[in-house]
Design a protein around this nucleic acid. Structure first.
Lengths: 149, 149
DNA sequence: TGATTTATATCGTATCACGATATATTTGCG
DNA sequence: CGCAAATATATCGTGATACGATATAAATCA
């Protein structure tokens, strides 16, 4: 039985954490496959989404892309070049110091095609995700709640 | 302004989706670094957690590991061997057909050290994650709610 | 202008994950 | 029993990719 020792870590915690990560992996897996079907690497897709998801007015530079994707600047630069080569972005070099990446119509179209399936997948995984989060937030209360119904 | 056209995709959706993925990446980034500090690759950590998170009684085989991590069986076998080499698991070959991976005390200790920080990180990201999920579930209601306060 | 700082680009390399294939074990059936 | 078929795991070579180190370019400021 669930021994919640002095460390405060119970088997319930581990199970919930493992489930949470499983759901995340499953979502990534789905997203990777979906992107690849349209000829994008997962990184390219995430980059496009990161640009698209900026509040209107905000502009995406290489270094900002690096921050948002948690990759070194060098990797973000590689990525930016590949996005440009595939005509997913145009690089606005009005100010050459901090070139701005702008989505092309091609990229917008791809996002329009990819996103609905993602929203569907998210709604699928949401219940399990929320359950795991709740358990990790306070599983003791959850256990009581489970008893009560 | 947020044009939610016939496609049903608004800028709010994209922003929420981008934020959701940003949070997931941030968590992964944290987890990767934390695991590496203890000498584990991210994959090794996820494998250990997947084993630890099994409901008591359940047993982890190579093929099951492959399923849970969404990797080919070959990759799971590589991983299993590396886990054994580092003495994170012992391979129970009572039935040689489907060897069972069991966590060693070393692995248990590592999980005990890694997990609290992960729970903390999860509690950190939870609010933003939940917000994004709610927006994607039904952002129109959210906008109204935002007006009202 | 020349020096300094900051941002991006280039390039070689090490790592890793995977596909193809081989091996081992169980099962089924004559 | 023994041999074939099915299933699970192991091995190995290779291509992709991400990254560190380094170079280049632009802005800032004295």
């Amino acid at each position: 039985m669930t021994s919640s020792g002095s460390g405060g870590l119970s088997e319930v915690d581990y199970e919930a954490l493992a489930n949470l990560r499983y759901r995340i992996r499953k979502f990534r897996q789905f997203s990777t496959k979906a992107a690849e079907k349209l000829g994008l690497t997962p990184q390219q897709h995430q980059a496009l989404l990161a640009i698209k998801g900026l509040r209107s007015g905000a502009q995406m530079s290489v270094s900002m892309l690096a921050e948002r994707l948690f990759v070194p600047t060098a990797s973000a630069a590689d990525l930016a070049r590949s996005l440009e080569e595939h005509a997913y972005v145009i690089v606005d070099v009005k100010q050459r110091r901090r070139p701005i990446l702008r989505l092309t119509d091609k990229a917008e179209e791809i996002l329009r095609r990819l996103t609905p399936a993602h929203l569907y997948e998210i709604r699928e995984m949401a219940p399990e995700l929320l359950l795991a989060l709740r358990v990790l937030q306070d599983h003791r209360r959850m256990e009581v709640a489970a008893w009560m119904q």
